[in-house]
Amino acid sequence: MRVRTALVGTTALILSAALAAPAVAATGTRSTGGHAGTRTAIDAAVAAGVPGVTATARDTHGTWSATAGVGDTGTGTPRSAADRYRVGSITKTFVSTVLLQLEAEGRLSLDDKVDRWLPGVVRGHGHDGRGITVRQLLNHTSGIYDYTSDAGFARDHFARDGFFEHRYDTLTPHDLLAVALRHEPDFAPGASWNYSNTNYVVAGMVIEKVTGHSYATEIRRRVLRPLHLTATSLPGTEVTVPRPGSRAYSKLAETDTGPTYDVTTLNPSMASSAGEMISNSADLDRFYSALLGGKLLPPRQLKEMKTTVKIDGVPNVRYGLGLMDTKLTCGVHVWGHTGGIHGSVSAAATTPDGRHSLAFNFNGDWTGDTGAVIEGEFC
């Protein structure tokens, strides 16, 4: 999921020095590799106004972690390398992985029409699941309207007054889909590309229909347990973030000025299978390393996941199936995803062989440059 201030891509947010949080020096452990560029970018994010940053990189030299800034602006408590945080749209890679595993097992095809699994569910104002494939859900070429772009939904869940009134509401996937279906599609299926959280809400519903279990159950069974991702969870309607963790901060406005609010607790059902997950940097490194290293998908399915489509206006990023291919300024390609949800901006990036990974989190959603951190690590 993305909040209205978070962008899909490698440079996530507008720059600002709106919040001056006291910085804590970055601290590294257990690696002989160089991470000076990453340290510099992390410190720059805090100087630009991000309250705090936590990051972990994993490569052939070992594991390196760094923190800067604070996890709590009231107490000055620093961020921890072990912090758990809301990962937003990084959830999409997990959902896509499950669907590709189901394809490998012969239980569905990516070319199945959505209506085969959810008959009559995706219908309204020109939307028609009979013409949309599962693949088009996963690579955002379905044309289904993004429910988070609905003005009423945005007012109730992203703007200050609406958020404080509705932050603990429980919303079902059908509720979220109903918001999208009030609008016309963005385009005919396959005709273009547009990032839509609704695609992954529907994808989660397909998983449940195929398996008889929720997408959360399937992610736990197929990914979290085999990889021992003990810091990663699917909270459902649980409003808190497990410890250790930091506070999360937002302006709750489309601006980088004005008051800053603590938005740590919320009901993540508003994100559902588009962005509800919680993790930490070490777990995300392990997940993406395993995925790109071929430990979660057979070669055919991994190739499908890495088959990308163009994103208009973003020449250095292409989108696969819940996975982005980003070409950095130094020519290096990294695979991964970004994620934004109230007060939390995260990114994970991994080299094509899965041998060098980085994951990190900003606990403020209105400032900072995620792209600079990724460039710092891989270039």
Score class of each variant (00 low, 15 high):
residue 277 M to T: 09
residue 15 L to Q: 15
residue 284 L to W: 03
residue 159 A to G: 11
residue 17 A to C: 12
residue 165 E to F: 09
residue 111 D to R: 14
residue 245 G to Q: 13
residue 45 A to L: 01
residue 265 T to P: 08
residue 74 G to E: 02
residue 13 L to N: 15
residue 191 A to L: 09
residue 205 M to G: 07
residue 133 T to M: 07
residue 84 R to Y: 04
residue 109 S to M: 00
residue 1 M to R: 09
residue 52 G to E: 06
residue 247 R to Y: 08
residue 76 G to D: 07
residue 108 L to E: 07
residue 163 F to Y: 15
residue 94 F to P: 01
residue 2 R to Y: 11
residue 37 G to W: 06
residue 290 A to V: 03
residue 372 A to R: 10
residue 33 G to D: 12
residue 165 E to L: 15
residue 77 T to H: 12
residue 15 L to R: 15
residue 193 W to N: 09
residue 298 P to Q: 13
residue 313 G to H: 08
residue 75 T to S: 15
residue 13 L to T: 14
residue 108 L to V: 04
residue 274 A to G: 14
residue 330 C to S: 14
residue 3 V to H: 11
residue 12 A to K: 09
residue 84 R to F: 01
residue 211 T to V: 05
residue 342 H to F: 15
residue 188 A to D: 10
residue 82 A to Q: 15
residue 29 T to I: 11
residue 111 D to P: 07
residue 212 G to V: 04
residue 82 A to G: 13
residue 356 H to P: 03
residue 253 A to V: 09
residue 292 L to V: 03
residue 17 A to E: 11
residue 156 D to M: 01
residue 38 T to Y: 05
residue 269 S to A: 05
residue 167 R to Q: 13
residue 169 D to L: 11
residue 101 Q to I: 03
residue 168 Y to V: 10
residue 136 Q to C: 10
residue 329 T to G: 14
residue 320 G to H: 10
residue 147 Y to W: 06
residue 52 G to R: 06
residue 189 P to T: 02
residue 328 L to N: 03
residue 102 L to A: 02
residue 243 R to V: 12
residue 215 Y to V: 11
residue 39 R to G: 06
residue 37 G to P: 02
residue 243 R to H: 14
residue 53 V to I: 14
residue 365 D to S: 07
residue 344 S to M: 08
residue 8 V to Q: 13
residue 42 I to S: 10
residue 112 D to V: 08
residue 263 V to Y: 01
residue 45 A to T: 01
residue 43 D to M: 14
residue 184 E to D: 14
residue 341 I to S: 08
residue 365 D to L: 11
residue 185 P to Q: 02
residue 344 S to R: 04
residue 66 A to M: 06
residue 252 L to M: 02
residue 85 Y to W: 14
residue 102 L to E: 03
residue 111 D to E: 14
residue 121 V to I: 10
residue 364 G to L: 02
residue 304 E to D: 13
residue 229 L to E: 02
residue 192 S to W: 09
residue 197 N to G: 12
residue 267 N to H: 04
residue 17 A to Q: 13
residue 136 Q to D: 10
residue 216 A to M: 14
residue 183 H to Y: 03
residue 215 Y to I: 01
residue 340 G to H: 02
